[in-house]
């Protein structure tokens, strides 16, 4: 599903990264670890099409993401990639339900209220749909952001430090939820983290080394 080749990125002459080749099949999970500063977030943004690689290739399914330009990359990301962040952020003025509708709207995908309701109920946040996001507990917020990443049934889910702000209990349930949902939705799941607690939860792991300075 996801395959990278000779991926490189340079912020400037002094700060550049080259990444090992990665692969992750549909329904599989890949954990990318490494100390801060080794380019984890850069890699994630490259995989999401937010940054454009200076060299190398990224293919997702049949699409060569690294060949897409700005607007096309935006469109592809909206339709095919779900993102989960360290801290759950929402549009504060919209209800949870509208926040969950947003990716479908922006990614030009159909999403019925019923389907969103079922997804939310499945993740245990069905009762929060009519509320504003900041009324939810941290655990509920992280579940809601996972739900948001799943709404468009993406081929690839990218998670950036999804657990590092959570306590052990929430950490375990969130990582369990992420891997199970990715498998159920037949999506490739890539998690970048420095959170050592996750090493036991995901089998496929790549460690990035400090480089480039």
């Amino acid at each position: 599903m996801l395959q990278t080749k000779n991926l490189q990125f340079a912020y400037n002459n002094d700060l550049s990264f080259s990444f090992p080749d990665l692969g992750c099949g549909a329904g599989e999970s890949l954990l990318i670890t490494g100390r801060s500063g080794c380019g984890k977030t850069t890699l994630l943004h490259l995989l999401a099409g937010i940054l454009h690689p200076s060299a190398g290739e990224i293919s997702i399914g049949d699409t060569l993401l690294s060949s897409l330009g700005g607007a096309a990359a935006d469109r592809f990301r909206g339709a095919c990639i779900g993102l989960v962040y360290q801290r759950p952020h929402f549009i504060a003025s919209l209800t949870v339900l509208d926040n969950l509708r947003l990716p479908a709207y922006l990614g030009h995908k159909p999403a019925s209220e019923k389907a969103i309701g079922e997804l939310a109920a499945h993740l245990g946040i069905g009762h929060t749909l009519r509320q504003l996001p900041d009324r939810l507990s941290v655990g509920e917020q992280q579940r809601a952001s996972i739900a948001r990443a799943l709404v468009n049934r993406p081929a690839l889910i990218l998670a950036d430090e999804p657990t590092s702000a959570l306590d052990d209990e929430n950490c375990a349930s969130v990582i369990e939820l992420l891997t199970r949902q990715a498998a159920e939705h037949d999506a490739a799941l890539v998690i970048v983290t420095h959170d050592g607690r996750l090493k036991s939860a995901v089998k496929n792991q790549v460690e990035l080394s400090l480089q480039g300075r």
Partner: peptide, 13 residues
Amino acid sequence: YELALMRSMGCSR
């Protein structure tokens, strides 16, 4: 951040 979020969900510039 909200705007960045919308961009990350595929909203064009």
